[in-house]
Simulated assay, not measured.
Amino acid sequence: MIDILQSWDPTLVDPCTWFHVTCDHDNRVTRLDLGHAKLSGHLVPQLGSLHRLQFLELYKNELVGPIPKELGNLKNLISLGLYHNNLTASIPPTLSNLSNIKLLRLNNNKLTGRIPRELTKLKNLKIIDLSNNDLCGTFPTYGSFSNFSQQSFKNNPRLTGPELMGFVRYDIGGSCK
């Protein structure tokens, strides 16, 4: 298999010539398609400076560490695919700034903590998949989350189920961190 990143020459001014990078008419990056690319390491906060980015697909790699809060700066993002990696820590509440997001797939990682309630404000969100992580507490059932089934949250052993009537159920003993 050809190395996906072989065309990524950092000395070139124009990344629009790189494989798996799509740009608009102003030569601004709008799409990164690096799913199943054998990438490893941490996601860098600088990704949040790609203000015209609409699609960030980094699924099925070996990425580790937290999701940078700076990804919340990507106001034009339509799809965020970070599934099937080894990402850890909690889901940053700043992802609620992604007002154009339609697809948010963070499944099959090692994410922990509560589901940020701010995400319920994402009016354009059509698909969310947070399954197969280590999230805890409850999942919201209001706002944009009223459209999602429990399948979106399955296989989170410390997730106790849906919120009842919009109230957050807290674990006794504070086991949800």
Rank of each mutant, 00 (worst) to 15 (best):
L74N: 04
S7G: 09
P157V: 08
L5I: 09
L104W: 09
L80W: 06
K121M: 04
H42Q: 13
G113N: 01
S144V: 04
N86L: 10
D171K: 10
G48A: 13
N97C: 08
K123W: 01
N156D: 05
L104K: 04
R52K: 14
T141S: 15
S99A: 14
D24K: 10
P116C: 03
R114W: 02
F153Q: 02
I127L: 12
V168L: 12
T30N: 06
G41A: 12
E118W: 03
S96Y: 05
P116F: 07
R52H: 15
P93M: 07
S49D: 14
V64G: 03
D14F: 11
H20A: 14
L164P: 01
Y142A: 10
D14P: 01
N73I: 03
F153E: 03
L5D: 03
K110L: 11
M165W: 04
C23I: 08
K177H: 14
E118Q: 13
L50H: 02
N76W: 07
L43D: 01
G166K: 01
Y170K: 11
K126L: 10
S146I: 09
N133G: 04
L53I: 12
E62H: 13
L104T: 00
G161F: 09
G161Q: 09
I91V: 15
V44D: 10
M1R: 10
L119W: 03
S152W: 08
N27G: 06
S144N: 08
L80Y: 05
D33V: 03
T120E: 12
L63T: 05
S49R: 15
K126S: 11
S152F: 06
V21C: 01
L159W: 01
L164D: 13
T17V: 12
R158M: 08
T160M: 11
T94L: 10
S79A: 15
N155G: 00
K121D: 07
G161N: 08
L111T: 05
L87K: 06
S175N: 15
F145V: 02
K102H: 11
S7D: 09
G35F: 00
F153R: 04
N124H: 12
L135T: 05
S49I: 03
Q150T: 14
L125H: 05
R158T: 09
L32P: 00
D14S: 12
T112N: 06
D129G: 03
T160Y: 05
N76V: 02
A37L: 02
R169K: 14
K110N: 15
I115H: 02
N155E: 13
G65F: 04
R31C: 03
L32V: 12
I4W: 02
T141W: 03
S49W: 08
Y59I: 00
K69G: 03
E57K: 06
R28L: 13
P10D: 01
G173T: 11
N107Y: 12
N76H: 13
G48T: 12
I128L: 08
L119Q: 02
D33C: 00
P68Y: 10
H20I: 08
T138C: 15
N107S: 14
V13T: 13
R105Q: 11
L5A: 07
T120H: 05
L122V: 00
D14I: 07
K38W: 09
Y83F: 14
M1S: 11
L164N: 12
M1V: 13
P116R: 04
V29R: 01
K177W: 05
V64M: 11
L74Y: 00
D134R: 15
